[in-house]
Amino acid sequence: MAKPRVKVPKSAKAGEVITIKTLISHKMESGVRKDKQGNIIPRKIINKFTCEFNGAPVFSCDIDPAISANPFFEFNAKVNESGTFMFKWVDDDGSEYTAEKKIEVS
């Protein structure tokens, strides 16, 4: 069960560039490992991460199997107004995981 965790400051000044940290628990099966019988364990990873603020894209990452298990991303966002960050992770199998964080901007 992929579980996301996100760290966003609760408040900021208008125009400030804040730092956001995100983590989701996921095995990120790369598709190059073999099982005991020598068969390739099929690939199953989170292949896309997106961050939006009040509906507008902020940052995204196209992810390949070389990203470590429990994918971690740290990036920045410029906030001009209060609102909500929406984070989304997309699995190879089509599942989507989301998280939301509000921020007060004065």
Partner: peptide, 30 residues
């Protein structure tokens, strides 16, 4: 890109004006 991995692709970060800074950190497999 990881030049010596079986597949060199690692990730592509996409930025916008709202990123504020073109900076990103992650963890990768080598």
């Amino acid at each position: 890109l990881a030049d010596g991995n079986p597949n060199p692709a690692v990730a592509t970060f996409n930025f916008t004006e709202l990123s504020g800074k073109a900076s990103a950190t992650t963890r990768m497999r080598l």
